[in-house]
Design a protein around this nucleic acid. Structure first.
Ligand SMILES: [Zn+2]
Ligand SMILES: [Zn+2]
Length: 543
DNA sequence: CGTTGCGGGCTAT
DNA sequence: ATAGCCCGCAACG
Protein backbone atom coordinates (compact mmCIF):
# COMPACT_ATOMS: atom_id res chain seq x y z
CA UNK A 1 0.00 0.00 0.00
CA UNK A 2 1.81 2.49 0.11
CA UNK A 3 0.58 5.63 -0.41
CA UNK A 4 -2.05 6.49 -2.62
CA UNK A 5 -1.05 8.57 -5.42
CA UNK A 6 -3.09 11.31 -4.23
CA UNK A 7 -3.67 11.64 -0.72
CA UNK A 8 -6.84 13.17 0.29
CA UNK A 9 -4.98 16.34 0.37
CA UNK A 10 -3.19 16.28 -2.80
CA UNK A 11 0.06 16.40 -1.09
CA UNK A 12 1.02 19.79 -2.08
CA UNK A 13 3.29 20.04 0.82
CA UNK A 14 6.48 18.69 2.09
CA UNK A 15 7.23 17.68 5.57
CA UNK A 16 9.91 20.28 5.68
CA UNK A 17 7.80 23.11 4.52
CA UNK A 18 7.51 25.87 6.92
CA UNK A 19 4.09 26.48 5.63
CA UNK A 20 1.68 23.96 4.43
CA UNK A 21 -1.71 24.17 2.98
CA UNK A 22 -4.51 23.60 5.27
CA UNK A 23 -5.73 20.14 5.03
CA UNK A 24 -9.34 19.36 4.89
CA UNK A 25 -9.28 15.80 4.03
CA UNK A 26 -7.51 13.11 5.86
CA UNK A 27 -6.12 9.85 4.80
CA UNK A 28 -6.97 6.59 6.43
CA UNK A 29 -4.06 5.30 8.36
CA UNK A 30 -1.73 3.35 6.17
CA UNK A 31 0.14 0.79 8.09
CA UNK A 32 2.26 -0.27 5.18
CA UNK A 33 2.86 2.95 3.44
CA UNK A 34 5.62 2.46 0.98
CA UNK A 35 7.24 4.55 -1.65
CA UNK A 36 7.43 8.24 -1.55
CA UNK A 37 4.27 9.45 -0.17
CA UNK A 38 2.72 12.09 1.93
CA UNK A 39 -0.29 11.45 3.97
CA UNK A 40 -2.24 13.49 6.38
CA UNK A 41 -3.96 11.89 9.29
CA UNK A 42 -6.39 13.22 11.71
CA UNK A 43 -4.79 14.53 14.81
CA UNK A 44 -6.77 12.06 16.80
CA UNK A 45 -5.66 9.05 14.87
CA UNK A 46 -4.12 6.82 17.44
CA UNK A 47 -1.81 5.04 15.12
CA UNK A 48 -0.63 8.24 13.64
CA UNK A 49 -0.12 9.66 17.06
CA UNK A 50 2.07 6.76 17.87
CA UNK A 51 3.92 7.17 14.63
CA UNK A 52 3.46 3.53 14.12
CA UNK A 53 4.07 1.56 11.01
CA UNK A 54 3.96 -2.01 9.91
CA UNK A 55 7.54 -1.58 8.90
CA UNK A 56 10.03 -1.79 11.68
CA UNK A 57 10.94 1.83 12.00
CA UNK A 58 13.28 3.16 14.53
CA UNK A 59 13.66 6.65 15.70
CA UNK A 60 16.57 8.46 14.26
CA UNK A 61 17.91 11.80 15.19
CA UNK A 62 17.51 14.32 12.50
CA UNK A 63 18.25 17.21 14.78
CA UNK A 64 14.93 18.69 14.04
CA UNK A 65 12.55 19.06 16.85
CA UNK A 66 9.62 19.61 14.65
CA UNK A 67 9.92 16.56 12.64
CA UNK A 68 10.24 13.09 13.93
CA UNK A 69 12.30 10.97 11.66
CA UNK A 70 12.43 7.22 11.62
CA UNK A 71 14.42 4.86 9.51
CA UNK A 72 13.61 1.33 8.50
CA UNK A 73 15.35 -1.55 10.13
CA UNK A 74 14.52 -3.97 7.38
CA UNK A 75 13.34 -7.40 8.21
CA UNK A 76 14.61 -10.35 10.12
CA UNK A 77 15.00 -13.26 7.77
CA UNK A 78 16.43 -16.72 7.74
CA UNK A 79 20.01 -16.85 6.69
CA UNK A 80 19.14 -19.77 4.52
CA UNK A 81 16.16 -18.11 3.06
CA UNK A 82 14.19 -21.17 3.72
CA UNK A 83 10.61 -21.52 2.76
CA UNK A 84 8.04 -22.56 5.18
CA UNK A 85 5.80 -25.42 4.38
CA UNK A 86 3.12 -23.15 3.23
CA UNK A 87 5.44 -21.44 0.88
CA UNK A 88 6.00 -18.37 2.95
CA UNK A 89 9.30 -17.08 3.92
CA UNK A 90 10.56 -16.19 7.26
CA UNK A 91 10.35 -12.50 7.84
CA UNK A 92 10.14 -11.52 11.42
CA UNK A 93 9.99 -8.10 12.86
CA UNK A 94 13.31 -6.65 13.91
CA UNK A 95 13.30 -5.37 17.44
CA UNK A 96 13.45 -1.64 17.52
CA UNK A 97 15.81 -1.64 20.40
CA UNK A 98 19.36 -2.16 19.31
CA UNK A 99 20.08 -4.46 22.10
CA UNK A 100 17.08 -6.62 21.49
CA UNK A 101 17.78 -6.67 17.83
CA UNK A 102 21.22 -7.95 18.37
CA UNK A 103 19.82 -10.71 20.38
CA UNK A 104 17.53 -11.69 17.62
CA UNK A 105 20.30 -12.07 15.16
CA UNK A 106 21.83 -15.42 15.15
CA UNK A 107 18.86 -17.07 16.68
CA UNK A 108 17.77 -20.26 15.02
CA UNK A 109 15.33 -19.96 12.21
CA UNK A 110 11.79 -20.40 13.36
CA UNK A 111 11.30 -22.97 10.70
CA UNK A 112 11.71 -26.18 12.55
CA UNK A 113 13.28 -27.91 9.71
CA UNK A 114 15.69 -25.20 8.90
CA UNK A 115 19.07 -24.83 10.41
CA UNK A 116 19.43 -21.29 9.35
CA UNK A 117 19.85 -18.41 11.66
CA UNK A 118 18.00 -15.22 11.78
CA UNK A 119 19.68 -12.29 10.26
CA UNK A 120 18.69 -8.84 9.36
CA UNK A 121 18.01 -7.93 5.84
CA UNK A 122 18.65 -4.23 6.00
CA UNK A 123 16.51 -1.78 4.20
CA UNK A 124 18.15 0.02 1.39
CA UNK A 125 15.14 1.40 -0.22
CA UNK A 126 16.12 5.00 -0.25
CA UNK A 127 19.13 5.49 -2.34
CA UNK A 128 20.88 2.73 -0.60
CA UNK A 129 19.82 3.88 2.79
CA UNK A 130 16.92 2.79 4.83
CA UNK A 131 13.55 4.13 3.95
CA UNK A 132 12.70 7.04 6.16
CA UNK A 133 9.46 8.20 7.64
CA UNK A 134 8.82 11.67 8.84
CA UNK A 135 6.11 12.74 11.18
CA UNK A 136 5.01 16.16 11.97
CA UNK A 137 2.13 17.32 14.06
CA UNK A 138 0.05 20.35 13.52
CA UNK A 139 -2.92 21.55 15.31
CA UNK A 140 -5.35 19.65 13.29
CA UNK A 141 -3.46 16.97 11.61
CA UNK A 142 -0.52 14.67 11.63
CA UNK A 143 1.57 14.80 8.55
CA UNK A 144 3.38 11.78 7.37
CA UNK A 145 5.94 11.57 4.66
CA UNK A 146 7.95 8.60 3.53
CA UNK A 147 11.01 8.52 1.37
CA UNK A 148 12.13 5.44 -0.42
CA UNK A 149 10.65 2.14 -1.35
CA UNK A 150 11.31 -0.77 0.91
CA UNK A 151 13.42 -3.29 -0.88
CA UNK A 152 12.62 -6.10 1.45
CA UNK A 153 9.59 -8.05 2.54
CA UNK A 154 7.35 -6.72 5.15
CA UNK A 155 8.22 -7.81 8.60
CA UNK A 156 5.54 -9.49 10.55
CA UNK A 157 2.90 -7.21 11.81
CA UNK A 158 3.66 -5.35 14.91
CA UNK A 159 0.79 -6.97 16.63
CA UNK A 160 2.14 -10.37 15.89
CA UNK A 161 5.49 -9.48 17.16
CA UNK A 162 4.06 -8.13 20.31
CA UNK A 163 1.89 -11.10 20.78
CA UNK A 164 4.78 -13.38 20.44
CA UNK A 165 6.71 -11.48 22.93
CA UNK A 166 4.00 -11.45 25.42
CA UNK A 167 2.78 -14.89 24.86
CA UNK A 168 4.18 -16.72 27.53
CA UNK A 169 6.52 -19.28 27.23
CA UNK A 170 3.74 -21.43 26.59
CA UNK A 171 5.27 -23.74 24.43
CA UNK A 172 2.65 -25.22 22.41
CA UNK A 173 0.40 -24.79 19.66
CA UNK A 174 -1.83 -22.94 21.85
CA UNK A 175 0.25 -19.88 21.65
CA UNK A 176 0.23 -20.13 18.01
CA UNK A 177 -3.47 -20.31 17.86
CA UNK A 178 -3.71 -17.20 19.85
CA UNK A 179 -1.39 -15.39 17.62
CA UNK A 180 -3.16 -16.42 14.59
CA UNK A 181 -6.41 -15.36 15.94
CA UNK A 182 -5.02 -12.02 16.80
CA UNK A 183 -3.54 -11.50 13.50
CA UNK A 184 -6.64 -12.46 11.77
CA UNK A 185 -8.59 -10.06 13.84
CA UNK A 186 -6.20 -7.27 13.26
CA UNK A 187 -5.97 -7.57 9.63
CA UNK A 188 -9.33 -6.31 8.78
CA UNK A 189 -8.75 -2.82 9.60
CA UNK A 190 -6.62 -2.18 6.66
CA UNK A 191 -9.02 -2.84 4.02
CA UNK A 192 -10.15 0.66 3.99
CA UNK A 193 -7.17 2.20 2.48
CA UNK A 194 -6.83 -0.23 -0.18
CA UNK A 195 -9.40 0.63 -2.62
CA UNK A 196 -7.59 3.57 -3.81
CA UNK A 197 -4.55 1.60 -4.29
CA UNK A 198 -5.53 -0.29 -7.28
CA UNK A 199 -6.86 2.76 -8.75
CA UNK A 200 -3.66 4.49 -8.39
CA UNK A 201 -1.71 1.63 -9.55
CA UNK A 202 -3.56 1.88 -12.74
CA UNK A 203 -2.95 5.52 -13.00
CA UNK A 204 0.63 4.90 -12.35
CA UNK A 205 0.84 2.93 -15.46
CA UNK A 206 -0.56 5.76 -17.34
CA UNK A 207 1.87 8.07 -15.87
CA UNK A 208 4.63 5.95 -16.93
CA UNK A 209 3.78 6.49 -20.46
CA UNK A 210 4.51 10.07 -19.97
CA UNK A 211 7.82 9.52 -18.56
CA UNK A 212 9.66 9.30 -21.73
CA UNK A 213 8.25 12.49 -22.92
CA UNK A 214 9.08 14.20 -19.84
CA UNK A 215 12.43 12.79 -19.35
CA UNK A 216 14.05 15.70 -20.93
CA UNK A 217 12.26 18.05 -18.77
CA UNK A 218 12.98 16.12 -15.76
CA UNK A 219 16.57 16.15 -16.51
CA UNK A 220 16.38 19.76 -16.89
CA UNK A 221 14.69 20.24 -13.66
CA UNK A 222 17.00 18.05 -11.90
CA UNK A 223 19.79 19.88 -13.38
CA UNK A 224 18.71 22.75 -11.34
CA UNK A 225 20.47 21.38 -8.53
CA UNK A 226 22.29 18.21 -8.27
CA UNK A 227 22.91 16.99 -4.91
CA UNK A 228 26.30 15.89 -4.40
CA UNK A 229 25.39 12.51 -3.48
CA UNK A 230 22.69 11.13 -5.45
CA UNK A 231 21.36 7.89 -5.03
CA UNK A 232 22.07 5.72 -7.78
CA UNK A 233 22.10 2.60 -6.10
CA UNK A 234 20.32 0.37 -8.17
CA UNK A 235 22.77 -2.23 -7.69
CA UNK A 236 21.63 -3.22 -4.40
CA UNK A 237 18.35 -4.04 -5.61
CA UNK A 238 19.61 -5.96 -8.37
CA UNK A 239 21.71 -7.96 -6.16
CA UNK A 240 18.68 -8.94 -4.32
CA UNK A 241 16.93 -10.09 -7.30
CA UNK A 242 16.34 -13.69 -7.22
CA UNK A 243 15.96 -16.31 -9.61
CA UNK A 244 12.36 -16.85 -10.10
CA UNK A 245 12.91 -20.23 -11.40
CA UNK A 246 14.13 -21.55 -8.21
CA UNK A 247 11.18 -22.25 -6.21
CA UNK A 248 10.59 -23.44 -2.82
CA UNK A 249 13.11 -26.08 -2.63
CA UNK A 250 12.67 -26.30 0.99
CA UNK A 251 9.05 -26.03 1.10
CA UNK A 252 8.18 -29.34 2.37
CA UNK A 253 10.26 -29.34 5.34
CA UNK A 254 8.66 -30.00 8.52
CA UNK A 255 9.18 -28.06 11.59
CA UNK A 256 11.34 -29.00 14.38
CA UNK A 257 9.95 -28.46 17.77
CA UNK A 258 12.42 -25.83 18.63
CA UNK A 259 11.37 -22.33 19.39
CA UNK A 260 11.66 -19.81 16.66
CA UNK A 261 14.65 -18.19 18.01
CA UNK A 262 15.98 -21.07 19.86
CA UNK A 263 16.10 -24.02 17.68
CA UNK A 264 18.15 -26.63 19.28
CA UNK A 265 17.63 -29.46 17.01
CA UNK A 266 20.40 -30.45 14.73
CA UNK A 267 18.34 -30.91 11.71
CA UNK A 268 20.47 -30.12 8.77
CA UNK A 269 19.37 -28.54 5.76
CA UNK A 270 21.13 -29.44 2.67
CA UNK A 271 21.38 -26.11 1.09
CA UNK A 272 22.12 -23.89 3.65
CA UNK A 273 24.98 -24.68 5.43
CA UNK A 274 27.31 -21.95 5.06
CA UNK A 275 24.94 -19.36 4.13
CA UNK A 276 24.25 -18.14 7.47
CA UNK A 277 27.67 -16.91 7.72
CA UNK A 278 27.07 -14.26 5.27
CA UNK A 279 25.39 -11.11 5.99
CA UNK A 280 22.42 -10.24 4.06
CA UNK A 281 23.70 -7.02 2.91
CA UNK A 282 24.34 -6.96 -0.72
CA UNK A 283 27.86 -6.11 -0.47
CA UNK A 284 28.53 -9.22 1.31
CA UNK A 285 25.97 -11.26 -0.20
CA UNK A 286 26.39 -14.75 -0.73
CA UNK A 287 24.10 -16.11 -3.01
CA UNK A 288 21.33 -17.80 -1.42
CA UNK A 289 20.70 -20.86 -3.20
CA UNK A 290 17.29 -20.18 -4.19
CA UNK A 291 15.16 -17.30 -4.52
CA UNK A 292 14.24 -16.17 -1.23
CA UNK A 293 11.25 -14.15 -1.88
CA UNK A 294 10.06 -15.55 -4.97
CA UNK A 295 7.35 -17.19 -3.30
CA UNK A 296 6.16 -14.47 -1.25
CA UNK A 297 2.53 -14.69 -1.27
CA UNK A 298 0.93 -11.96 -3.13
CA UNK A 299 -0.80 -10.93 -0.12
CA UNK A 300 1.56 -9.78 2.39
CA UNK A 301 1.67 -11.11 5.72
CA UNK A 302 -0.05 -8.10 6.72
CA UNK A 303 -3.19 -9.47 5.42
CA UNK A 304 -5.24 -10.83 8.07
CA UNK A 305 -6.50 -13.74 6.29
CA UNK A 306 -3.21 -14.61 4.96
CA UNK A 307 -1.56 -14.25 8.14
CA UNK A 308 -3.64 -16.73 9.74
CA UNK A 309 -3.02 -19.22 7.13
CA UNK A 310 0.33 -18.64 5.93
CA UNK A 311 2.59 -16.61 7.93
CA UNK A 312 2.20 -17.51 11.43
CA UNK A 313 1.37 -21.04 10.99
CA UNK A 314 4.72 -21.55 9.61
CA UNK A 315 6.50 -20.54 12.66
CA UNK A 316 6.68 -22.48 15.68
CA UNK A 317 5.52 -19.97 18.11
CA UNK A 318 4.69 -22.44 20.66
CA UNK A 319 8.10 -22.19 21.93
CA UNK A 320 8.35 -18.55 21.59
CA UNK A 321 8.45 -16.99 24.86
CA UNK A 322 9.82 -14.02 26.43
CA UNK A 323 13.03 -15.75 26.78
CA UNK A 324 13.38 -16.19 23.13
CA UNK A 325 15.76 -13.46 22.93
CA UNK A 326 17.83 -14.38 25.80
CA UNK A 327 21.36 -14.31 24.73
CA UNK A 328 22.21 -17.25 26.75
CA UNK A 329 20.02 -19.39 24.80
CA UNK A 330 21.92 -18.92 21.74
CA UNK A 331 24.64 -20.94 23.16
CA UNK A 332 22.42 -23.66 24.14
CA UNK A 333 21.90 -24.74 20.70
CA UNK A 334 23.58 -27.71 19.31
CA UNK A 335 25.02 -25.52 16.79
CA UNK A 336 26.32 -22.51 18.46
CA UNK A 337 25.87 -19.33 16.71
CA UNK A 338 28.82 -18.59 14.71
CA UNK A 339 30.55 -15.67 16.10
CA UNK A 340 31.51 -14.46 12.76
CA UNK A 341 28.07 -14.50 11.61
CA UNK A 342 26.79 -12.48 14.37
CA UNK A 343 29.53 -10.13 14.04
CA UNK A 344 29.14 -9.54 10.45
CA UNK A 345 25.56 -9.16 10.81
CA UNK A 346 25.78 -6.46 13.22
CA UNK A 347 28.06 -4.54 11.13
CA UNK A 348 25.69 -4.88 8.32
CA UNK A 349 22.67 -4.47 10.23
CA UNK A 350 21.88 -1.36 8.57
CA UNK A 351 23.03 -0.59 5.23
CA UNK A 352 25.24 2.25 5.31
CA UNK A 353 27.05 2.10 2.27
CA UNK A 354 25.67 3.12 -0.82
CA UNK A 355 25.85 1.05 -3.31
CA UNK A 356 27.21 0.62 -6.45
CA UNK A 357 25.91 2.12 -9.45
CA UNK A 358 23.58 0.30 -11.52
CA UNK A 359 22.64 0.58 -14.95
CA UNK A 360 20.48 3.35 -14.20
CA UNK A 361 19.41 4.04 -17.60
CA UNK A 362 18.31 0.66 -18.48
CA UNK A 363 14.72 0.17 -18.35
CA UNK A 364 15.06 -3.48 -18.43
CA UNK A 365 14.05 -5.58 -15.65
CA UNK A 366 16.76 -7.65 -14.34
CA UNK A 367 15.74 -11.08 -14.07
CA UNK A 368 19.02 -12.54 -14.13
CA UNK A 369 19.08 -14.40 -11.17
CA UNK A 370 22.27 -14.44 -9.67
CA UNK A 371 22.91 -16.70 -6.93
CA UNK A 372 23.12 -13.82 -4.74
CA UNK A 373 19.87 -12.46 -5.64
CA UNK A 374 17.63 -12.32 -2.77
CA UNK A 375 14.55 -11.41 -4.45
CA UNK A 376 12.83 -12.74 -7.31
CA UNK A 377 10.61 -10.30 -8.70
CA UNK A 378 7.40 -11.38 -9.89
CA UNK A 379 5.97 -9.01 -12.24
CA UNK A 380 2.59 -9.38 -10.88
CA UNK A 381 3.75 -8.39 -7.55
CA UNK A 382 5.80 -5.66 -8.77
CA UNK A 383 3.05 -3.91 -10.40
CA UNK A 384 1.10 -3.50 -7.36
CA UNK A 385 2.68 -2.03 -4.49
CA UNK A 386 -0.06 -0.94 -2.44
CA UNK A 387 -0.07 -0.29 1.03
CA UNK A 388 -3.08 -2.07 1.63
CA UNK A 389 -2.22 -4.72 3.70
CA UNK A 390 -2.59 -7.41 1.48
CA UNK A 391 -0.43 -6.62 -1.16
CA UNK A 392 2.67 -8.31 -1.72
CA UNK A 393 4.54 -6.15 0.36
CA UNK A 394 7.45 -8.18 0.28
CA UNK A 395 8.04 -7.38 -3.18
CA UNK A 396 8.24 -3.81 -2.94
CA UNK A 397 11.80 -3.73 -2.66
CA UNK A 398 13.37 -5.90 -4.72
CA UNK A 399 12.24 -6.03 -7.97
CA UNK A 400 10.81 -2.86 -8.61
CA UNK A 401 13.70 -0.77 -8.43
CA UNK A 402 15.59 -2.18 -11.14
CA UNK A 403 14.04 -0.19 -13.74
CA UNK A 404 12.80 3.21 -13.53
CA UNK A 405 9.64 2.23 -15.11
CA UNK A 406 9.21 -0.59 -12.89
CA UNK A 407 9.71 1.41 -9.92
CA UNK A 408 7.31 3.90 -10.86
CA UNK A 409 4.74 1.38 -11.36
CA UNK A 410 5.49 -0.38 -8.30
CA UNK A 411 5.53 2.40 -6.02
CA UNK A 412 2.48 2.75 -4.41
CA UNK A 413 0.55 5.21 -5.70
CA UNK A 414 1.65 4.78 -9.04
CA UNK A 415 3.76 7.68 -8.60
CA UNK A 416 6.88 7.10 -10.29
CA UNK A 417 9.54 6.76 -7.85
CA UNK A 418 12.96 6.42 -8.80
CA UNK A 419 14.73 4.98 -6.00
CA UNK A 420 17.70 4.47 -7.94
CA UNK A 421 17.96 7.92 -8.92
CA UNK A 422 19.28 6.74 -12.05
CA UNK A 423 18.99 10.06 -13.53
CA UNK A 424 22.02 11.81 -12.64
CA UNK A 425 21.16 15.03 -14.06
CA UNK A 426 22.91 18.08 -13.18
CA UNK A 427 21.00 20.44 -11.18
CA UNK A 428 23.62 22.94 -11.60
CA UNK A 429 22.16 24.20 -14.70
CA UNK A 430 19.62 26.09 -12.85
CA UNK A 431 20.79 27.71 -9.79
CA UNK A 432 18.71 26.68 -6.98
CA UNK A 433 18.69 30.13 -5.70
CA UNK A 434 17.07 31.19 -8.82
CA UNK A 435 14.22 28.94 -8.21
CA UNK A 436 13.83 30.14 -4.80
CA UNK A 437 13.70 33.68 -5.71
CA UNK A 438 11.14 33.04 -8.26
CA UNK A 439 8.90 31.17 -6.13
CA UNK A 440 9.39 33.25 -3.24
CA UNK A 441 8.41 36.38 -4.92
CA UNK A 442 5.36 34.89 -6.24
CA UNK A 443 4.25 33.69 -2.94
CA UNK A 444 4.49 36.64 -0.80
CA UNK A 445 1.66 35.47 1.24
CA UNK A 446 3.51 32.75 2.89
CA UNK A 447 5.14 33.45 6.02
CA UNK A 448 8.54 32.17 6.04
CA UNK A 449 9.44 32.81 9.50
CA UNK A 450 10.46 29.92 11.41
CA UNK A 451 9.24 29.45 14.81
CA UNK A 452 10.11 26.45 16.48
CA UNK A 453 7.95 23.95 17.95
CA UNK A 454 8.49 20.40 18.73
CA UNK A 455 6.83 18.31 16.20
CA UNK A 456 4.69 16.84 18.79
CA UNK A 457 3.23 20.13 19.45
CA UNK A 458 0.91 20.85 16.79
CA UNK A 459 2.30 23.14 14.38
CA UNK A 460 -0.48 25.41 13.61
CA UNK A 461 1.45 27.29 11.18
CA UNK A 462 2.34 24.33 9.24
CA UNK A 463 -1.16 23.74 8.45
CA UNK A 464 -2.09 27.25 7.95
CA UNK A 465 0.80 28.21 5.92
CA UNK A 466 2.29 29.80 8.81
CA UNK A 467 5.80 29.30 9.80
CA UNK A 468 6.89 27.13 12.52
CA UNK A 469 6.42 28.76 15.72
CA UNK A 470 6.83 27.66 19.05
CA UNK A 471 8.86 25.88 21.01
CA UNK A 472 11.95 24.26 20.24
CA UNK A 473 13.90 25.09 17.32
CA UNK A 474 15.25 22.79 14.99
CA UNK A 475 18.28 21.98 16.56
CA UNK A 476 20.58 23.89 14.75
CA UNK A 477 18.93 25.62 12.03
CA UNK A 478 15.82 27.23 11.12
CA UNK A 479 13.92 26.59 8.07
CA UNK A 480 12.34 29.80 7.69
CA UNK A 481 14.78 31.83 5.93
CA UNK A 482 15.13 29.74 3.05
CA UNK A 483 11.79 28.37 2.75
CA UNK A 484 10.33 28.85 -0.56
CA UNK A 485 6.90 28.00 -1.39
CA UNK A 486 6.09 27.09 -4.84
CA UNK A 487 2.51 26.87 -4.12
CA UNK A 488 1.72 29.40 -6.62
CA UNK A 489 2.75 27.18 -9.30
CA UNK A 490 -0.33 25.33 -9.39
CA UNK A 491 0.40 23.75 -12.56
CA UNK A 492 3.24 21.76 -13.61
CA UNK A 493 3.40 24.01 -16.52
CA UNK A 494 3.95 26.94 -14.43
CA UNK A 495 6.82 25.28 -12.90
CA UNK A 496 8.34 24.44 -16.17
CA UNK A 497 7.75 27.81 -17.54
CA UNK A 498 9.77 29.27 -14.86
CA UNK A 499 12.71 27.39 -15.96
CA UNK A 500 12.03 27.27 -19.55
CA UNK A 501 10.52 30.63 -19.82
CA UNK A 502 7.76 29.10 -21.60
CA UNK A 503 4.87 27.02 -20.84
CA UNK A 504 5.41 23.68 -22.17
CA UNK A 505 2.70 21.26 -21.76
CA UNK A 506 -0.13 20.36 -19.66
CA UNK A 507 0.99 17.08 -18.69
CA UNK A 508 0.82 17.06 -15.04
CA UNK A 509 1.95 13.60 -14.75
CA UNK A 510 5.29 14.56 -15.84
CA UNK A 511 5.82 16.56 -12.91
CA UNK A 512 4.96 13.78 -10.77
CA UNK A 513 7.65 11.74 -12.14
CA UNK A 514 10.06 14.37 -11.69
CA UNK A 515 9.02 14.99 -8.30
CA UNK A 516 9.29 11.50 -7.41
CA UNK A 517 12.67 11.05 -8.64
CA UNK A 518 13.90 14.09 -7.13
CA UNK A 519 12.48 13.40 -3.84
CA UNK A 520 13.53 9.96 -3.66
CA UNK A 521 16.96 10.07 -4.78
CA UNK A 522 18.27 13.42 -4.49
CA UNK A 523 18.51 14.42 -0.97
CA UNK A 524 18.87 18.03 -1.62
CA UNK A 525 16.00 18.04 -3.88
CA UNK A 526 13.63 16.54 -1.57
CA UNK A 527 12.13 19.80 -0.98
CA UNK A 528 11.15 20.12 -4.50
CA UNK A 529 8.03 18.37 -5.12
CA UNK A 530 4.78 18.71 -6.66
CA UNK A 531 1.57 17.58 -5.62
CA UNK A 532 1.28 14.49 -7.26
CA UNK A 533 -0.71 15.61 -10.04
CA UNK A 534 -1.92 18.84 -10.87
CA UNK A 535 -1.67 20.36 -7.60
CA UNK A 536 0.38 23.24 -6.75
CA UNK A 537 3.99 22.83 -6.32
CA UNK A 538 5.61 23.10 -3.16
CA UNK A 539 9.19 23.69 -3.44
CA UNK A 540 11.03 24.38 -0.42
CA UNK A 541 14.50 24.86 0.38
CA UNK A 542 15.56 25.60 3.67
CA UNK A 543 18.41 25.60 5.54
C1' DC B 1 11.94 -6.12 28.67
C1' DG B 2 11.00 -3.61 24.66
C1' DT B 3 9.15 0.65 22.47
C1' DT B 4 9.42 5.34 21.57
C1' DG B 5 11.33 9.80 21.68
C1' DC B 6 15.09 12.97 22.67
C1' DG B 7 19.28 14.85 21.69
C1' DG B 8 24.53 15.04 21.88
C1' DG B 9 28.05 13.87 18.99
C1' DC B 10 30.57 11.87 15.04
C1' DT B 11 31.10 11.17 10.15
C1' DA B 12 30.64 11.60 5.23
C1' DT B 13 29.38 14.19 1.45
C1' DA C 1 24.62 22.36 5.54
C1' DT C 2 22.58 17.86 5.10
C1' DA C 3 22.03 13.32 6.17
C1' DG C 4 22.98 8.89 8.38
C1' DC C 5 24.00 6.78 12.41
C1' DC C 6 25.68 5.49 17.17
C1' DC C 7 24.84 5.94 21.90
C1' DG C 8 22.85 6.88 26.28
C1' DC C 9 18.92 8.59 28.78
C1' DA C 10 14.20 8.59 30.13
C1' DA C 11 9.22 7.74 30.12
C1' DC C 12 6.07 4.32 29.53
C1' DG C 13 3.65 -0.07 29.32
ZN1 LIG D 1 15.17 -21.02 7.89
ZN1 LIG E 1 12.52 -0.96 4.68
Amino acid sequence: MSCRAYSANAADWDINDSAIPRINEYDPFSEWADGHCRLVYRADNEEAKRHSSGWAMRNTNNHNVHILKKSCLGVLVCSLRCTLPNGDRVHLRPAICDKARKKQQGKPCPNRQCTGRLEILPCRGHCGYPVTHFWRHTEHAIFFQAKGVHDHPRPEAKSTSEARRTLGSGRRVRGLAVLLAKEAALGNKFDIGRKTVDKFAASGVEQITHIEKTTVKLVKLMSLREPKRQCREITNQVSRTLNPSSILPETDKGYCSCPPFECVCSYQQPLATSLHQFPSSPSYQQPPLDSFWTQEPLHGQSYPADMANSVNPQYDFSSISTDLFQPEEIFQMDQPVKPDYVHINQSNEIARSPSTLLDLGSGTIHREFKTEDYWSPSIGNMLINDDSNNSSNSNSRFNLNQTPENQMVLNNNSLPVDQNCYMSSKLDELPFSLQKSHYYQQNPTFDVTDNKTPYLLEDKNFQNFEPYQNGKNYNKHSYQDEYIDLGQFNEYNSFLSVYDNKVTNNDNTIFNDLDFRINSCVPSLNNVHSTYSHEAFDVISHQ
